[in-house]
């Protein structure tokens, strides 16, 4: 049984236009199914507006799903009341993109990390609490003596370590990381990725790792799900998907990744046009207006995500195995 099992999840968010306009909804997540096994890192990639962040938040019920099921360790989250949800929240935590805005500037690092311990009553005595905080800071590579400092005294990379320590405080089994290294300097990104992998191994953590950076996802994740306009268009083992992408969108996305080595340059598929507005998704396959190989039925018939025998799935009428 997977640790996290998301089934046909839909998140439709109301959009407020001018007062005279009819209320509309944006289908931010439109029927996504995916699983995360215990100890596994699953990458969620796609361009801005594809729904990957909304999906990540809906998994923790930070946004309410419109339909579908989220089963965490055998219990259906979507049906839980607040009190029961709080107990389960302890087992899944979130690391945010921006380490500058996700920490309270008026609290010391020790207070921020300790708050989670207090909420879930994990440290019976003051001594146990400070010992735990010191241990957490050490485990993310920070000096425990810095627990009394404020966030502004740290660099971006150090702040992201604090965010990770805060998430680890309650000993979760699943960490949802939303672009955890995008706001960091290039030379610091690798430190944080290595740290995330170390804690994965030490604690058997599972990750839902949201990123727009395919190279980072291929490196960090065992499996990958590619999203486009609220749907998963391709999923499978990350290495296989990145080496031999089957969906035309995944192929274009991979070919657009800049290559440093001028000699290993691949032909680039430049997609025409832009991601359509999720307010008015095109009929048929959502990717067909930009797809270089689209044909007649792609314009009318939405392809289902078909599971292959090799653990890979593609939502494309034309993709072979």
């Amino acid at each position: 049984m997977p640790l996290l099992d998301v089934q046909d999840l839909r998140v439709h968010l109301p959009v407020r236009g001018p007062v005279w306009s009819r209320p509309t909804v944006v289908r931010a997540v439109d029927g996504v199914s995916l699983t995360v096994e215990a100890g596994e890192a699953v990458g969620l990639v796609g361009e801005s507006g594809c729904g990957k962040t909304t999906l990540g938040r809906a998994v923790l019920r930070l946004v309410e799903p419109t339909a579908g099921r989220i089963v965490f360790d055998g219990r259906e989250l979507t049906k839980l009341e607040r009190g029961a949800l709080r107990g389960l929240r302890r087992r899944m935590q979130m690391v945010f993109q921006d380490p500058f805005n996700s920490l309270n500037p008026r609290r010391t690092v020790g207070e921020s990390v300790g708050e989670a311990l207090d909420i879930h009553r994990l440290a019976p005595t003051r001594a146990a609490r400070s010992e735990r905080i010191a241990g957490l800071l050490t485990s993310v590579g920070l000096d425990p003596a810095h627990a009394d400092r404020y966030p502004h005294e740290f660099s971006g990379g150090q702040r992201q370590r604090i965010g990770i320590a805060r998430a680890l405080a309650v000993d979760p089994q699943l960490l949802v990381c939303d672009e955890p290294v995008s706001a960091l300097d290039v030379s610091v990104q690798a430190q944080v990725i290595n740290l995330l992998r170390d804690v994965q191994r030490e604690r058997g953590l599972a990750y839902l790792f949201i990123s727009h950076d395919l190279a980072v996802v291929e490196h960090f994740c065992q499996r990958i799900a590619v999203m486009y306009l609220g749907r998963v268009v391709e999923t499978g083992p990350s290495r296989a998907v990145c080496r031999q992408p089957r969906h035309p969108y995944t192929q274009a996305l991979l070919s657009a990744v800049p290559v440093v080595d001028p000699q290993s340059k691949r032909p680039r598929i430049i997609l025409t046009g832009e991601v359509p507005s999720p307010l008015a998704p095109p009929p048929g396959c959502p990717f067909h207006p930009r797809c270089p190989v689209a044909e007649g039925r792609c314009r009318t018939e939405a392809p289902a995500l078909r599971m292959g025998s090799d653990g890979r799935a593609v939502a494309c009428h034309l993709a072979g195995d």
Binding site: I193, R197, R243, V257, V260, D261
Partner: peptide, 12 residues
């Protein structure tokens, strides 16, 4: 320090 597509490495 940056991961490269298609290159296998355990740690960056």
């Amino acid at each position: 320090s940056a991961p490269i597509l298609g290159r296998e490495q355990d740690r960056l």
